[in-house]
Design a protein around this nucleic acid. Structure first.
Lengths: 219, 219
DNA sequence: GTGCAAAATTTGGTATACCAAAATCTGTTG
DNA sequence: CAACAGATTTTGGTATACCAAATTTTGCAC
């Protein structure tokens, strides 16, 4: 994956920690302590924290330690609405501009997902799911769109992961992906968007359910 | 406006320079030289450059000076498609959720724009135009959406400014803004989106024209 | 025990110095 | 004159030290 600067390395490490839940939402990330702990100076740690901050994974507070973001359901929901809008646009563009090779690649991702679904790690499987969506957006041939989408997805990663784990409906997800793929193959933007809407609305529903359960437990 | 850190100050200054065209697209921004020139150390200059980089205004190259971004027409066009998608979503949400006060505020912005149109600076007028669009997005009550939109707008600022200057059709813009506003007042999402599409397509057309003229001159 | 003021700590921000990699310049050699 | 190897410069990255603002703790007085 190319060269990895120290601060990128730290950022990745922190990101993983946050997304896997090792660093609890709301817990502080002290610049100095954390840097010392990982054996680096403040400088790269600073950059890493900034990076995660503008990915939305940590929040900076004036004169206070940065803390791991703890998004409300509203925030998650807002992000998902945004992701939906971006993927709908991607669908329109991809149906018009994607090359046949790109569509084959997307299909290959889905095939891989189905093939490995019961032999691999929960997290790895989920990563493939994300890849599927990312590949579709990339097929739009709109780079700023792809970048924006990627950044939002990483912000939603944890919520989507927890939701999908709670959901336990792999087969239905596969069917939805296949339907989306078929629409793309047919270059039928309207069908694509309909299927995508359906897929994402189910996903969102799942996550909402998960958040409600957590709230009930907390209350 | 809050407090302004040194690096924010530098970032703003550089941004203005880029957007106004004082720093030509493609010209290098040397960390050290630039820092010395502005009487600060490398540290805040670094942060400022990073900031502008992830706003898309400068591009970082490995082992080379960062340079002022020089977006192609394709890139501008892609960003505008993205902005359009975001504003269309905002319209849908704003029609459903904006408060009457917010709508009044948007109307006030437009009124101010019309009132001051021939007494103020070209750039200031343009700033008000941007404010109008930002206010609509804010009325969606979707913060991630607003942030994403803001970041993209700043990236497009220069292109839109140059396009609008070339266009010289203030009255038509006013009419379009009023139409959008009326749809919002009526909470008619479909009408809102139709008017917005129209407005943005004209804007884009203008910018395209401008880019073509520049290309012809260069060729 | 309570309230408040002063001291100590924590924090972000900045300056400066150093290093290694990369790019560029330079001088020599064929 | 061309090509190539070595030296120099430029660049980004990192470590470290210092400062001021803000927070937190401490301790004294009532």
């Amino acid at each position: 994956m190319a060269e990895e600067n120290r601060f990128e390395h730290i950022a990745n490490r922190l990101r993983r920690g946050i997304l896997r839940g090792d660093l609890a939402p709301g817990s502080p990330i002290k610049e100095r302590d954390n840097a010392a702990e990982m054996g680096v100076s403040r400088t790269p740690m600073r950059e890493a924290i900034r990076q995660l901050a503008n990915e939305g994974l940590v929040v900076l507070r004036p004169s206070r330690s940065p803390i791991v973001a703890d998004p409300s359901w509203k925030e998650i929901s807002d992000c998902m609405d945004l992701v939906r809008a971006l993927e709908l646009l991607s669908g329109e563009l991809a149906c018009a501009k994607a090359t046949d090779e790109e569509i084959d690649q997307i299909a290959a991702i889905q095939a891989r997902m189905e093939a490995e679904s019961d032999s691999i790690d929960e997290i790895d499987l989920f990563e493939i799911d994300m890849e599927f969506h990312v590949a579709i957006v990339r097929a739009s041939h709109n780079i700023p769109l792809a970048e924006t989408h990627r950044s939002l997805l990483s912000r939603l990663w944890r919520a989507r992961f927890l939701g999908s784990r709670a959901g336990r409906n792999q087969d239905r997800v596969f069917a939805q992906h296949q339907a989306i793929l078929a629409a793309l193959r047919a270059r039928d933007a309207a069908a694509f968007q309909a299927e995508l809407r359906n897929h994402l609305s189910i996903l969102k529903q799942q996550i909402r359910q998960f958040y409600q359960e957590v709230e009930e437990e907390t209350a």
